[in-house]
Design a protein around this nucleic acid. Structure first.
Ligand SMILES: [Mn+2]
Ligand SMILES: [Mn+2]
Ligand SMILES: [Zn+2]
Ligand SMILES: [Zn+2]
Lengths: 142, 142
DNA sequence: TTTTAAATTGTAATTATTACAATTTGATAC
DNA sequence: GTATCAAATTGTAATAATTACAATTTAAAA
């Protein structure tokens, strides 16, 4: 069940703790880019003694080791992503859902040529998602 | 002095208030993508009765009217940009400065074809800026 | 000049995040 | 297996950004 995550932590010479495994498994199985609050609330159900500080500590450490990444797309809270490869995101202003967009930025080279050392690239699109557009059509009857 | 901003507000049929003019002028003349705190602290010097809530209200309203835009690049606070055209940003992890990057995303069409209605595009690069790289070189002597 | 909706102000509440000290625990060495 | 210890976990308190709200003031239209 957890072998995959044990392996992942060992590869980064991180201590294997039940809390860490829970968090990793949760992020892996819930690719909606959850907040700390969401992770905490969900995992608390099966481990009532879990501390929110532990969730904060762990997502921070996991990100520092490059295992997961954080998104600043929403502005008022960080979202976490089990995927650590470069990809873009779309956030729907109606329903708030965040979608993966699998495109790569073709401009990285250009930016680096102007003297910046790039360590992270984030592409955020904001607008209305398919479902919400359809829902709108239904209501308007256009 | 303020005619430019008066015109801007009138064009959007927004009331012209001294606070609004101050905020617009400040953002126009300080293209470092300031926070609400920065705007507030600076403008308070010449108008001690200014309320931080007024700054929050106004940047929100100005953004709603498309006059300015907000950036979620830093994760823990919104930054404001007098420029409202589409461009990208680079944030330096050392000095925290935010630079404009004048490139346009060539993938917007592709994303829209997959059914999303795009209203905003944000490209955020994170890393080390020229100055901080140079400073590092000096210290290391590499 | 009068009127009124919108803007401003100040304070309180909320939310996300960080600080920190006490306790527990995973991993290593014996 | 047991001792050891740095690292992780926990709970509480503090901080920081943002929002809510009610009272007051004001820009702009009549
Ligand atoms: Mn993603
Ligand atoms: Mn900018
Ligand atoms: Zn939606
Ligand atoms: Zn720098």
């Amino acid at each position: 069940m957890f072998e995959k995550y044990v392996k992942l932590l060992r590869e980064h010479s991180m201590k294997v703790t039940p809390q860490r495994l829970d968090i990793l498994k949760y992020l892996d199985e819930h690719r909606v880019h959850p907040t700390v609050e969401m992770i905490y609330m969900e995992l608390k159900k099966n481990n009532p003694s879990l501390s929110k500080t532990t969730v904060y500590n762990n997502v921070e450490t996991l990100e520092k080791h490059g295992i997961i990444q954080s998104l600043t797309i929403s502005g008022n809270e960080l979202r976490y992503d089990f995927r650590n490869d470069m990809h873009c995101h779309f956030i729907c202003k109606r329903c708030g859902r965040i979608f993966d967009i699998d495109i790569v930025c073709p401009n990285i080279g250009k930016v680096e040529q102007s003297g910046f050392k790039i360590e992270e690239v984030h592409g955020y699109f904001k607008g209305i998602c398919r479902d919400c557009l359809k829902k709108e059509e239904m209501e308007n009857g256009s």
